[in-house]
Amino acid sequence: MNCETARQQIVLLIYGELSFEEEEILESHLDACVECNQERARLEKLSSFADLAESEVPAGLLARCRRDLTAALEQERRRPSLSSIFRGFWQKWFVNPPMWMRPAGALAMLAVGFFGARLLPDQSSALSQIGVSQGPPPTISKVRLVNPDNSGQVLVHYDEVRPRELRGNINDDRIRRLLLAAAADPADPGLRVDSIDILKSQTSDNEVRHALLNVLRADTNSGVRLKALDALRPYAKDPDTRKTLAQVLLSDDNPAVRTQAIDLLVQSKEPDVAGVLQQLLQNEENGYVRSRSQKALNDMKASVGTF
């Protein structure tokens, strides 16, 4: 092997891209050739320099990307498509049957009912599983997939929605499950806030707490996240809650949420809180949040600069 070939292969050696045989041949050249061996040392050092130029992902960027993506996907799903045409069709026929059908009265409606029942079997919705009584007929909320086959038939996957109502005690499992669903309804932040407000009294339930932690981590609306944070207040010492709070503290883009997270974390008086606060101070740009965490650290008599 000559020096020129060796120089070309040193890079590949450093990156572990040589075959066993190639590596053997190169290594024996490097053993014998001082200059090429020095070149290897230089390239290794260069490579470690490059490591230092790696840019950090700013705190909160990942969370912001995820939220914006959720919103963009939501919009994508709502784009006018086949589904809206279907929705129009079903609403027209179920809610406002055309005039020519009305004189036939019950019989015509029965026919529509039969037609509807055959085409729209009641099997999917969570509501039917929990035994809410029958209400108005369903409408199609979204067509997810249309798939023609060779025989000329088309397979259609769709979602249907059926407006219904249920009244009950908050301890009723069905009510609770509806509230949990509402707390995650992407369409309506107001509904989410109201639901969380009611669920606040149910945080001893694991499922409720879990749902609130999810809201705190991922809800796109900071008001809703604050509400969830507030609801979790009595569980500041619960390990899962603390884990999420630490995560939120380091990634949430809303200073008010971060401030609240600090307050709640500090309440628990656990020693690992100091580490989280120190980590926060590395990147925190908001002056108020900084001073708040600095004060918390001072109160804990932890040194701000060491960890």
Binding site: E56, V57, L69
Partner: peptide, 26 residues
């Protein structure tokens, strides 16, 4: 995100690439 951030060295550009990439995937 790490890849986009490293290549583009701009949080805004990295954010845009993230959105556009996953929308295209979708």
């Amino acid at each position: 995100l790490r890849l986009a951030m490293n290549l583009l060295r701009s949080p805004e550009d990295a954010h845009d690439v993230y959105q556009e990439a996953f929308l295209r995937v979708y």
